[in-house]
Write a protein that binds this DNA or RNA. Structure first.
Lengths: 127, 127
DNA sequence: GCATGACTTCGTTGATTGGCGAAGTATCAA
DNA sequence: TTGATACTTCGCCAATCAACGAAGTCATGC
């Protein structure tokens, strides 16, 4: 139990991972959307997601060529559900999180094909 | 708010600091007692305590030559009280924490003078 | 099959962090 | 006042960690 709790607190001790949790509180998202939202390298985001998943704070499912991450719905230890509720109630009115939500809405308007190729092309064009 | 929350999650991302929180859930303690309980150097314990206090997870008061640390009783942000409740309900039945509580009872039977000189002499004799 | 694209894994690097001892501060006792 | 004690601060070291790019895996579409 202490092991599980430490996995949760360590997972939540990084700001980008907390932001991911709040993004997923709004809706399930595929990795390329999260990459766009955080503005980090794909490998970095993937690492963050694996740490959150290890702590059972998020779950994932494969749909075609995309992998969707989402908050666990049930069958998850109480430690985890309480931690998620704590996050949500604590950060609901936070300025940065509200800004993140606005950006999320913009990102969700783009199609996935447009979005995912965008970050690749974007990097190339920027170089 | 995100700042406060990150301070809390970072503070709780270390196992020794979580153990301190659970010790203080039992009773207020002075630093030398916590040093004895964790088996760490005084400077290390002091650092842990300052990190927890920075996050408002604990408070302190001076009594004579000893400084007592304790869980905050009131006037503390909801983020903090919820985090403490989460810790306590999650770890109440944890094996390691239960062992810690047994050790705490032993330590509490010693007088402070005996205890605090003990760790200094202990270190010297061990060398 | 064979690209292409989405994501993960691996290896490296710079920054953060937990640990310690030594030195500093403050309180108590003689 | 002087020494001892409780705790903190400082400086250092080893270990951990976030970030990245490159290479690997896996599914889709031509």
């Amino acid at each position: 139990m202490l092991r599980n709790l430490m996995a949760v607190t360590k997972a939540l001790s990084d700001e980008n991972r907390v932001r991911i949790m709040m993004f997923l509180s709004e809706d399930e998202l595929c990795v390329c959307q999260i990459i766009e939202l955080l503005g980090l390298a794909p490998s970095t985001v993937s690492k963050h997601l694996s740490i959150l998943k290890q702590a059972e704070l998020i779950d994932s499912k494969k749909k075609g060529r995309w992998i969707y991450y989402y908050l666990p719905d049930e069958g998850v230890p109480e430690i985890v559900t309480q931690a998620i509720e704590w996050l949500q109630t604590s950060l609901n009115k936070d300025k940065q999180i509200q800004g993140d939500r606005k950006q999320l809405k913009k990102v969700q308007k783009k199609s996935l094909e447009e979005l995912c190729q965008a970050y690749v092309n974007g990097n190339r064009e920027a170089a």
